[in-house]
Amino acid sequence: MKDLMGLMGKAKEMQAKFEAMQEEVASLEATGQAGGGLVSVTLSGKGEMKSLKVDPSLFKEEEIEILEDLILAAHNDAKAKIEALMQEKSKDLTAGLPIPPGFKLPF
């Protein structure tokens, strides 16, 4: 019974840390770039697009498909950076816990 109470205490402690981590992650921002910096997208930790910058040289009618592709690539780059930051923060939070490989948080 003593082990169960200890486990419950650790679970509550981890939940509080996880909530704090979620707040911290929400305040993070990451900027992804494409086309050597011609297009950049900044996302919040929640994945919301905060800004989009496009070099004026890309505003040519015949290059609209290239511009669209670069915007998508920059967005995906920023999203990957946010996910990497979240994974790193989660790893710090769960350090020392016996969590099975491939198990994702939140529960």
Rank of each mutant, 00 (worst) to 15 (best):
M1A: 11
K2H: 13
K2F: 15
K2M: 14
L4V: 03
M5Y: 10
G6S: 07
G6P: 02
L7K: 09
L7R: 10
M8Y: 00
K10M: 12
K12T: 13
E13C: 08
Q15W: 00
Q15T: 03
Q15L: 02
Q15P: 01
A16Y: 03
F18T: 07
A20S: 08
Q22N: 10
E24P: 02
V25R: 01
L28E: 15
A34F: 01
G35E: 15
G36C: 09
G36N: 11
G36F: 10
L38Y: 06
V39E: 01
V39L: 01
V41S: 07
S44P: 09
S44Q: 11
K46I: 03
L52N: 10
K53A: 09
D55C: 11
P56F: 08
S57D: 12
L58N: 03
E62N: 10
E62T: 09
E65P: 02
E65F: 07
I66M: 13
E68H: 12
D69K: 10
D69G: 15
L70M: 12
L70R: 04
I71W: 04
H75M: 03
H75S: 06
H75E: 07
K79F: 11
K81F: 06
I82G: 08
A84P: 10
S90H: 13
S90Q: 15
K91W: 01
K91M: 06
K91L: 06
T94W: 13
L97G: 10
I99C: 05
P100L: 09
P100H: 08
G102W: 05
G102N: 07
F103I: 03
K104L: 12
P106T: 12
